[in-house]
Amino acid sequence: MTRAAHDLIPEAALAWHRAGKGAALATVVETWGSAPRPAGSQLAISGAGEMTGSISGGCVESAVITEALDALHDRKPRLLTFGISDETAFAAGLACGGSIRVLVEPVGDGAGALPEAFLAQLVTARAAPRAVAVVTIPASWERQLVAPGKDAAIDARFRSDRSGMEDDGRFIAIHNPPLRLIVIGAVHIAQPLLTIARTCGYAPVLVDPRAAFGRAERFPGEAVLDDWPDAALARLAPDARTAIVTLTHDPKFDDPAIRFALTSPAFYLGCLGSPRTHAARVERLAEAGFTAQQIAKIHAPVGLDIRARTPAEIAVAIMAEITATLRK
């Protein structure tokens, strides 16, 4: 399971540091009002002025980069607050006013700096991938990596996938494994859907036992499994951070996947097909012993109703519905 390039921010900071360029990591720890990026958003800055990630949409970024370069010289972390008035908010990227607090940490040596070994442990956990939280106490610059099951407050943040400050002064940065999208059916819609999903931060996997459909030239660089759908899903073990979409609208391919998905923790199951096709599908599932409550988990016809017509438009509608389901 690989992360999208735009999510490799701690990895970039570690690579720059190890290359001798110097690196600092900036993290949004709190927001108020209309801040455009949530707590946990990160920006990595190298001593050569390279950067990846985002913490805002404008001048806050410039100010943070300046502070990060200063931190690389004095080797001291800092906690910055940017409060933007409505009159100047647009220029600073906080379009309706608002404030953000940003933690800036130089990587490497220095009292309070982010130790290379600590950052390396985080990168290793993310590569595994394992869920891990970085707990920082800004008052003392103590840091700890915490796995799920160790702290109730941290576990609540793992479940909500939301970083933030606790009342006890700890900043908890959540690093969950990437969201996954499992697509059944290497049809035309799957081509833009996998691309859009990856852009949205998902690790997509395509399943189709028909070798002619899942050819590498049709899906360059994508993970394609040629197992039967239910066998592939058993192998992939969908969890609560997994969305599943069936696109063949052929019962012999879709039905085994749907039956498996309905008994899994996957947060989304969407199935391509007309209302008539879905009605027949519901009848088959009921005959197989699935309850009305289970069957109601299916989003069908798949995707938000945006009057989509082309494969790319349908893919947009599907990804929008997945996002709406995840974020509600």
Rank of each mutant, 00 (worst) to 15 (best):
A4M: 03
A4Y: 00
A5N: 12
A5D: 14
D7T: 08
L14M: 06
A15M: 12
A15Q: 15
G20I: 07
G20W: 11
A24T: 10
A26R: 04
S34K: 03
A35T: 13
L43D: 13
G49V: 12
E50A: 15
G58M: 08
A63N: 14
V64C: 10
A68Y: 09
L69P: 08
L72R: 03
H73G: 01
H73L: 12
R78G: 13
I84H: 12
S85A: 15
T88E: 13
G93K: 12
G93E: 03
I100F: 04
V102R: 11
V104Q: 02
G108M: 03
A111V: 13
A111N: 06
G112H: 09
V123Q: 05
A127F: 08
P129G: 14
T136L: 08
I137W: 07
A139M: 06
W141E: 14
R143F: 00
Q144P: 03
Q144I: 04
K150T: 13
D151R: 04
D151Q: 10
D151V: 09
A152Q: 13
A153G: 10
I154C: 08
I154R: 04
D155P: 09
F158N: 02
D168F: 14
G169H: 08
I172V: 15
I174S: 05
N176R: 15
N176T: 11
R180K: 15
L181Q: 04
I184R: 00
I184A: 00
L193C: 07
L194E: 08
L194S: 02
I196W: 01
C200I: 02
G201H: 06
Y202N: 07
A203I: 05
V205Y: 01
V207K: 00
R210Q: 13
G214Y: 03
E222C: 09
E222H: 14
A223C: 07
P229Q: 05
A232W: 03
L236M: 10
A240L: 04
T248Q: 01
T248F: 00
P251H: 06
I258S: 02
T263D: 15
C271M: 08
L272R: 01
S274P: 07
P275A: 13
A279I: 04
R281E: 04
E287T: 11
Q294V: 08
I295E: 00
I295A: 03
A296K: 08
I306W: 07
V316D: 08
A317F: 01
A317E: 02
